[in-house]
């Protein structure tokens, strides 16, 4: 079996899930007070079974999801950059040897997204609010979706992998 093709298929399907989920909860996944619950999928790259496929999956998924974003091109570019950076650092942290890696990974991802989307998009490009408000409104939403929902999701999925071994 060709593993490279399987990875490609996995990238496509993860990005479909990301895009569907984001559009499904549309009013709360875009904008200043956002809790994009599908950002919990960013933590998928923590699992070695997903790895790079998850990184590219959530990145591509964000491109597609943000086609629906009312905030246009800047949201497509910056949101995608945010997901790429966040999922890459999650994958990097998963290989470190420290305690509570998953919590650290989730927190780092949330801060990165809040910096790029909150400050980059909302403050610098659209100048919608003060710099602190722009950062924290995104950060709080990411705490819920990446840290809370994400960790619950990852624990559940890693259980399936453990069972299937």
């Amino acid at each position: 079996m060709n593993l490279k093709l399987r990875d490609l298929a996995l990238v496509a399907l993860i990005s479909s899930i990301y895009a569907i989920g984001t559009v499904l909860i549309a009013p709360i996944s875009y904008g200043i007070v956002q809790a994009r619950l599908t950002d919990s999928l960013i933590l998928l790259s923590y699992l070695p079974e997903f790895g790079w496929s998850a990184v590219f999956g959530v990145t591509l998924g964000n491109i597609i999801a943000n086609f629906f974003s009312p905030y246009g091109l800047p949201d497509i570019v910056l949101g995608t950059l945010a997901n790429l950076v966040a999922s890459l650092s999650v994958m990097y942290i998963s290989k470190l040897k420290v305690k509570q890696k998953i919590v650290i990974a989730a927190l780092v991802a949330s801060v990165e997204i809040a910096l790029i989307v909150g400050i980059g998009l909302l403050y610098i490009i659209y100048s919608v609010a003060s710099i602190e408000l722009a950062f924290f409104s995104v950060f709080v939403g990411e705490l819920i979706s990446v840290v809370l929902v994400g960790i619950i999701l990852i624990k559940a999925i890693s259980n399936i992998f453990r069972m299937s071994k």
Binding site: L8, V11, A12, L13, S15, L60, I64
Partner: peptide, 8 residues
């Protein structure tokens, strides 16, 4: 990957 994802 993009086309597949849209398709799925």
């Amino acid at each position: 990957a993009f086309t597949l994802s849209m398709r799925f």
